[in-house]
């Protein structure tokens, strides 16, 4: 039974939960299903951790377990430790890119499941390395290297994306450029 604090935490966390679902799933419909199933599971849980950090981890772990169950049922469980070689970025490589939200999000969608998941946990959901490590049941050092590999892969995807037109981050920036 959820008390008021837990209800408040659930409401605060729901956007990040949905963001995590979007990062895990291939399409928005599947993400909505995963989100709803997670909420349903949470609402019907007999007990919920009282401490907020533990509670947050518990919520995301429910979603992750449901996601794994689905993948397992479909026979396409990914390799969660994506050790695929990612070329180490040379000094200054990729720095000429205009990093904008659209380009990053498009490249993010093209990453492997493992890379998407680790970046979702750290960047979208805001977990610390220690929390992500607890959630994935690995050492914090493993999270550190996975994050590094995933971001390097993201930069490579952004470089591969020839069709992305770099847009200015803010309209005001464009207007300033026009004046100049």
């Amino acid at each position: 039974m959820l008390d008021q604090t837990q209800q408040a935490l659930l409401m605060q966390t729901r956007r990040k939960l949905f963001g995590y679902a979007c990062a895990l799933c291939e399409d928005i419909g599947a993400a909505e299903d995963l989100y709803q199933d997670t909420m349903l599971r949470v609402m019907t849980a007999r007990m919920m951790p009282e401490e907020s950090t533990a509670c947050r981890l518990w919520l995301f772990r429910i979603m992750r377990n449901l996601w794994i169950d689905r993948l397992r049922a479909e026979g396409r469980l990914p390799d969660f430790d994506d050790n695929a070689e990612v070329e180490e970025l040379a000094q200054g490589q990729g720095d000429d890119q205009v990093v904008n939200a659209l380009a990053v999000r498009q490249a993010f969608g093209k990453l492997s499941k493992a890379h998407r998941e680790i970046l979702a946990l750290v960047d979208i959901c805001g977990f610390s390395y220690a929390e992500a490590a607890e959630m994935l049941d690995v050492a914090p050092g493993t999270i550190m290297s996975r994050v590094s590999r995933a971001r390097a892969a993201l930069v490579v995807k952004m470089q591969d994306e020839k069709n992305v037109i770099a847009l200015p981050l803010r309209r005001s920036a464009r207007r300033l450029g026009e004046r100049g």
């Binding site: 959820l2 209800q7 659930l10 409401m11 729901r14 956007r15 990040k16 949905f18 963001g19 979007c22 909505e32 989100y35 709803q36 909420m39 349903l40 609402m43 990093v99 904008n100 939200a101 990053v104 999000r105 993010f108 970046l119 979702a120 960047d123 979208i124 805001g126 971001r151 993201l154 930069v155």
Partner: peptide, 21 residues
């Protein structure tokens, strides 16, 4: 910038109907 872009990725997602307590 990459971290910030991903961090704001879910800010403008339309949230599905959420079960109410």
């Amino acid at each position: 910038r990459i971290k910030a872009a991903l961090g704001s990725a879910c800010a403008d997602l339309p949230l599905p109907a959420t079960p109410q307590p």
